[in-house]
Design a protein around this nucleic acid. Sequence first.
DNA 1: TCGTAAACGTTCAAATACGCGCATTATGAA
DNA 2: TTCATAATGCGCGTATTTGAACGTTTACGA
Lengths: 249, 249
Amino acid sequence: MVDRNSVLKFIKKNDFTTTQQLCAEFGISESTARRVLDQLDSLGQITRLHGGAMPVSVTGQATEFQMRNSLFKQQKIAIAKMAAGIIEDYSTVILLGGTTVCELCPFIENRTITVITNSILVLNGLKYSRNVRLILLGGLYNYQEEEVGGLLANKGLSTVRADHLFMGASGFDERYGFSTTNAAVDLYMNCIETSVTTSVLADSSKYMKGGAAVTASLEQVQYLFTDSGLDLRARKAMEEKNISVMIAD
Amino acid sequence: MVDRNSVLKFIKKNDFTTTQQLCAEFGISESTARRVLDQLDSLGQITRLHGGAMPVSVTGQATEFQMRNSLFKQQKIAIAKMAAGIIEDYSTVILLGGTTVCELCPFIENRTITVITNSILVLNGLKYSRNVRLILLGGLYNYQEEEVGGLLANKGLSTVRADHLFMGASGFDERYGFSTTNAAVDLYMNCIETSVTTSVLADSSKYMKGGAAVTASLEQVQYLFTDSGLDLRARKAMEEKNISVMIAD
DNA sequence: TCGTAAACGTTCAAATACGCGCATTATGAA
DNA sequence: TTCATAATGCGCGTATTTGAACGTTTACGA
């Protein structure tokens, strides 16, 4: 019997371990190596690839963001497209963090509007748009979220007003409202204060999940843009709080 | 099986990686290198270009960065390297615009310091540096200079102090001092106010050229970092005003 | 503008890795 | 010892990945 813990340790030491390496290291046949790999994979302790395996989270923080990005990408694009529809020409909109909100960029790049954001991804998405006046909030750069936040960002907001605020969410439910893993809650609050309407963009997988911090209560949000996978009761609950639930398909 | 994570890491370490480099580094054929590149690109983890690939969201910058930099690049690097020498650990430095100032990034990315900047190029140059606390000033995005400026930037500065200010210059002479084509003069003034020392980085070709607006008088500057091509009389004139002229070679 | 060299994408055969079935080899209890 | 169970190793047909070949596109200098 091969000690699976030893194998796990060995794999975790490296970025990538080939089946061959395991054969050599533990003196086992390819079949056995593959079996062990299968077991560890089904336990979620490694990620199996053609040719071998890698530790589950070798991708690290930076790419973890990109993985989230590829998840539910189609829904996110559809949601963003619909949300862009409520933006009037010559209006001012705030785009707050989140991968879903970033997807708005392609749909507004030719509009004549002013965009205020804390997200470097939004900046990159709109940097070549001549019609868009792009205002970046300042603050400490958060390399995980690729956005800025903190004192400077809040300070900048004090002289700002906006017609629309679009924000993402790590999770939402009818009890707590909308939440995020991001700690910059005061930024969200200030933006809600300063905006005429507040919209949340969140695909249906976010329902009943929760982030660490509440960013907005149900009462503070006018629009929820989501996809058709949203639970019907959730939709009812949202609409009872006067949130317009917009379903992308 | 080539480990795509290793490839991704390798690419992220550099501004630009050629297909050939990947072949050599990982011992794979061009076909395979291109395939891996395609995969990473379709996952949105890198940006593919003719000849190779670069990390994501450095897209526009790197090319333009390299173009503008090809002019006097060697001098700029030497100047930046020398300037980085005056930065102490645990200090706070402001980096204001300009391609020369950007060249500081490689020389400070492993230092434990706080960097405040209005330049998106500096942001991109330091975004993977975990030791550097990176604070971005807010404001209207200027797509020509790839920096932010205006009301928000100045506002943010009101709660900031810094040990060193490094700024570029479009031109300088003994009559007007240092000037730029950039209109955000008040930002420069505020930064000078708030910093203990002010340094200008400008290669010798900038002497007797002038920008549209004066950013600093000779009296306000403590260090001028330039190259050996500087006119000797100019150097005397600067030193008479108590500017330490530092010559890179 | 044109020509050249590098880089590209595509195709295809060879190499490699895979999963599955089955025989063989440990392990442990009766 | 004997049997039952689990783990291992091998063979083989299948699937994936790889590298070389080749025609096309792109970048760059004359």
